[in-house]
Simulated scan of single mutants.
Amino acid sequence: MKVLNITPTFHPEIGGIETVVLNLSVHCQRLGVEVEVLYVSPDHKRLQTRTVEGIKVTDVPLIGSKLVGYAPQLRQAIQGFDLLHIHDPQLMALSVGVMLSGSQLPRVLSTHGGFHHTRRLAGAKRLHEEFALRRMLDSYKLVLATSENDAAYFGRFTKRIRVTGNGIDVQRHRIADRPPSNDLRRWVYWGRLSENKRVDRLLDYAVRLKAMGYPLDLLITGTDVSRLACKFQTRIDSAGLHDSVRLAPPMNDIDLKAALRDRTVFATASEYEGFGLTLLEAMAAGLLVVCRDVEPMNKFVQNGQNGLCLAFDGSDADFAKLVEFLSMDQPHQQSMRSASVAFADAYDWPRIAKRFVSAYSEVLSTA
């Protein structure tokens, strides 16, 4: 079986889809599937190949944008495969490009949260949903939903859908020598600095907790995709948090793992997650999670068992929960940490990759 992952973003970029496509490729290859990656992007100036962790990657130039663009070399690049696995949450440039290529190869889609969860470009999204979405989905033999939320949304437009979820590289994030007990006020957020991640709410909560006598030691690290870092730093300085809240540039795996060794809580006020990859990575590292009480995050985090779900609405109820959480005794904290690690283990890529290989085999058997 020879599978081509086609993606709009990939290594050396850092993010959820990039990590998923790389890990999926590596672990499917370990299961005997021949896998390559096609990275289609307007950032590429010419067709070229490279190798990342043993996976052949072909960079293909895209004329236009990731939403409305055309890759003239796509037709050539997808030759010689048994199945195409397309990672196209927008269901636009990549899906259209493959359709225009004339290829009759069977193909599957990973949803990665879609793009209807934010109000940005709402009118264009409604038109896309009304006139294009069903036709786009009809071109796929199977839609692999990243979450139950995705399955519910995309299931309105196609019956050929299955929840596969995503996985994490548990060993890459495991911290074997973590101290048995840490200070619950030592928090970390890592991920993109974008509007929907609502890092501003974390800062608001740090301000109020300090006033209540519960100052946090908060590390914020990630790629500033929305140019918010200066705004956040101004907020930190004006609130007198410069000695307890630190903004840092994105870290590589080694530096991040070192930083997490003396952190206890991963916190995110994100309004939406397609899957919640970073939450699971934090759990694998032995961190407790404080997150917004929305799906799919509240499917991973159970209050009092492995973390805490909040409304992040600034309510007294939220802060009462936080005070109780921050006052947790050592045995309860250790119990929650063990539950957090055990939960993450169920999403280890060697297990999850088998779901994808099974889906590939099923599609090819009926092609």
Rank of each mutant, 00 (worst) to 15 (best):
H112T: 13
W190L: 09
D217Q: 14
A285W: 04
Y272W: 12
T118F: 10
N196I: 09
Q90F: 11
M251C: 04
F157E: 07
M92A: 13
L219I: 12
D177H: 14
Y205D: 00
E130P: 03
S101P: 05
M251Y: 04
L137R: 06
F275Y: 12
S194E: 06
N196M: 04
V98R: 03
V68D: 04
L100A: 15
A211Y: 07
R160V: 10
G97S: 11
M136D: 06
V68A: 11
G97R: 04
L247S: 04
L322E: 06
L219S: 10
Y214M: 10
S338E: 15
F319L: 12
G155N: 09
V199R: 00
L203I: 15
L22V: 08
D150V: 11
I14G: 01
F81V: 15
G15M: 07
P61N: 13
R126L: 13
G276P: 02
V20F: 08
P72C: 07
D345F: 02
V294Y: 01
L100F: 12
Y189S: 02
V35K: 06
R185Q: 10
D255P: 00
N303D: 15
Q29N: 09
Y39A: 14
M251T: 04
S365F: 12
V96C: 11
E295K: 14
D255F: 04
F232T: 01
E273T: 08
I14D: 00
A229W: 03
R174T: 15
V289C: 06
R198M: 11
S95H: 02
D345N: 13
D177W: 09
S65T: 15
Q76T: 15
A145H: 13
V26F: 00
E295P: 08
P61G: 07
P106A: 03
A206F: 08
T51K: 07
A206P: 10
F312S: 00
G15W: 09
A71M: 06
V37Y: 00
L144F: 07
P179D: 03
P61W: 06
M328S: 11
G165A: 08
I78F: 03
